[in-house]
């Protein structure tokens, strides 16, 4: 396991280096944007982070269901880790969004459906982490978090559709970008996505190690307590 982690860490590092190289050197500057076209390069990490954010929350959803079925602690630990990493990734989306928006359209924030859904998603999973924080016993924490992990994820598509219809008056920005992606840009996007996926897995391993250590500590304390 230790060995696997080292290999994964090294692979993540190399792929991120490659992704940075491709974003800044390999991928061409878009030709259809006249004003500060370099700004568009933030797309590679913005979109990758968004995808991994959604993936992380999907993992929370699946692990929550499995946990409620078989009550094995490891699924709860995976769900908790994934939620934390997912919140980090959605935070990246929410931070890079305004940076891009300000430079490209001179607005910090646009209530565009995907950005707004990400914001609601972020709130839902922050709530998930707060629930984990405020339930006293381990078992209850795991159970409540799993229940909310399911409710929250089922809510996301409805939130997305609602926000989409709500904002139909506004232009849908994704299309204007995706149309303009050349093959080189697409390759760069996929490499970034791969790099972020590896980084997600690496974070998950680290976070799981912390959970395991905490669990071992709790068990040791429990054994110590039962001697008294």
């Amino acid at each position: 396991m230790q060995k696997f982690r080292t290999v994964l860490g090294a692979a993540t590092f190399l792929l991120i280096c490659a992704a940075i190289y491709m974003v800044f050197i390999y991928a061409p500057v878009p030709s259809n944007v006249t004003d500060m076209p370099e700004v568009q390069k933030i797309l590679y990490f913005h979109v990758s982070a968004a995808w991994i954010g959604f993936l992380a929350f999907f993992v929370v959803f699946v692990c929550s269901i499995v946990y409620l079925k078989n009550r094995s602690r490891k699924w709860d630990m995976v769900a908790a880790s994934s939620a934390e990493v997912g919140v980090v990734y959605t935070s990246i989306v929410l931070l890079t969004g305004p940076v891009w928006g300000k430079a490209a359209w001179n607005v910090w924030w646009t209530w565009d459906p995907r950005l707004t859904t990400t914001l609601v998603l972020w709130f839902i999973y922050v709530a998930y982490l707060i629930i984990r924080n405020s339930a006293e016993e381990d078992e209850k924490r795991a159970r409540f978090a799993a229940v909310f992990g399911i409710i929250g994820f089922i809510d996301v598509p409805i939130v997305f559709m609602a926000i989409r219809w709500w904002r139909t008056i506004h232009p849908i920005i994704f299309e204007s970008n995706s149309v303009g992606l050349t093959p080189k840009m697409l390759t760069t996007l996929f490499v970034s996505l791969g790099a972020f996926t590896l980084l997600y897995l690496y974070y998950m391993l680290l976070r799981l190690d912390i959970s395991k250590a905490k669990l071992q500590l709790a068990e040791l304390k429990e054994r110590l307590r039962s001697h008294y």
């Binding site: 609601v120 709130f123 707060i130 809510d155």
Partner: peptide, 13 residues
């Protein structure tokens, strides 16, 4: 904190 994010669709609708 946990309810408002979930009821966003109802609020909008």
């Amino acid at each position: 904190i946990i309810l408002f994010p979930v009821i966003v669709p109802v609020v909008i609708g």
